[in-house]
Amino acid sequence: MPSQTDTTMIDIAGHPVPVVKGGLYDRFRSNPPLSVIAAEVPGVDLSWFKGLEKNKVDIGFESFSPNFYYQNSRVTAVYTADLDRLRALMPPEVLATVQPLQIWPGRGLIAFTAYTYEHCDNDAYNEVAVSIITNKPGKANLGPFTLIGQSMSGDFWGYVLKLPVNTELARVRGVVGYNLPKWLTGIDRKEDARSVVYDITDSQTGKVDVSFKAKKLDDLSSDVDIVTSSFTNLDHHGQLAYGYAVSRQLSHGSSRSADSATLTLGDGSLSNYIRSLKLGKMMKYEYVPAFQSALYAPKPLAALADTH
């Protein structure tokens, strides 16, 4: 996180937010010219973004959609989890539209993903997502078959349970603009030759609560892979909404080996929450050391039928 000396305060929807002084967000508020990015991050291929149009939107504050993420990495582990518990954690209105995928009787799926956004419209930050994998609204939930279909089409749907971030800018934008369950805490990323480790601090105690160790896989594919990740939730007025991000994966690999990822839980609130999901077998691990992304502003769920 930036030190106080390097920050300036701005207002987002009535929230005072410290941002990097002279950083991208301070200067351009989510709409930097690509020429600026090219100058600041030489060597990053920006060709994909040239084909995407930004529009001014009101998401509780003025912003631009989509939000661009130019240089990023992520690691994801998908685990089985207790299906009844997953259903209980979703609002009834959402559950009436989408349900957790049942992979076998009594078991659903949770995706645990750690992201590092090195260069994006709202400055650098780390984020960790705990999400229930669901069917797409309006589509049948056929459990494993739905999962295979989503994998083949690169069109994934989920319900986000937890989303800690390590900058106040990411927190406020996510909570106000995207209706996402974000809070501010320390998320430390370190790596060596073999693995990437994310340590998530408990915001109450200041101690490391969750540690996620992810293996750096060999045999990575450099075939460009376009993936859409969508979420369904309730907006600030209690209405059904959805949002989505389109990602361009530039380097990626996956594994089903149990030792690819290790989730170590402590005794803080996030660890206790994850324990309550009764995680079981790891079904899949994804290592994506290079991807780009465009995050679109949320829309009423009713609009989905018109566009997809």
Results as ranks from 00 to 15, higher is better:
M9A: 11
D11E: 14
P16N: 10
P18T: 10
V19C: 04
K21V: 11
G22T: 11
G23R: 05
D26P: 10
D26R: 07
L34P: 06
V36H: 07
V36Y: 06
I37A: 02
A38T: 10
A38I: 05
F49S: 08
F49W: 06
V57T: 13
D58V: 12
G60C: 07
G60M: 07
E62Q: 12
S65R: 02
S65L: 04
N67I: 15
Y69E: 11
V78K: 03
T80L: 02
T80V: 04
T80Q: 01
A81L: 03
A81C: 03
D84T: 12
E93I: 05
E93P: 03
V94D: 03
V94Q: 02
Q99M: 00
P100F: 02
P100H: 03
L101Y: 02
Q102H: 01
I103A: 02
G106Y: 00
R107E: 02
R107D: 00
G108D: 01
G108N: 01
F112P: 00
A114D: 08
E118T: 13
H119D: 10
N122F: 13
N122D: 14
A124T: 15
Y125V: 12
I132L: 03
K139G: 04
P144I: 03
P144Y: 00
P144C: 00
L147S: 02
I148G: 04
I148V: 14
Q150D: 14
S151E: 15
S153N: 09
W157I: 06
V160M: 11
L163N: 14
P164T: 08
T167C: 09
T167P: 07
E168T: 14
L169Y: 08
G177A: 08
Y178D: 14
P181A: 07
W183Q: 12
L184I: 10
L184W: 04
G186W: 01
G186R: 05
D188W: 05
S195V: 13
V196I: 14
Y198G: 03
D202V: 06
D209P: 08
D209Q: 04
S211N: 11
F212P: 05
A214F: 03
I226C: 07
V227E: 09
T232W: 01
L234H: 10
Q239R: 14
L240E: 09
A241W: 04
Y244H: 12
R248A: 08
H252Q: 11
H252C: 05
S254L: 10
A258G: 11
L265F: 06
N272D: 11
R275C: 09
R275W: 03
S276H: 05
K281C: 00
M282T: 12
E286R: 13
P289W: 00
F291I: 07
S293A: 15
A294F: 00
P298T: 09
L301G: 04
A302F: 06
A302H: 08
L304G: 02
H308C: 08
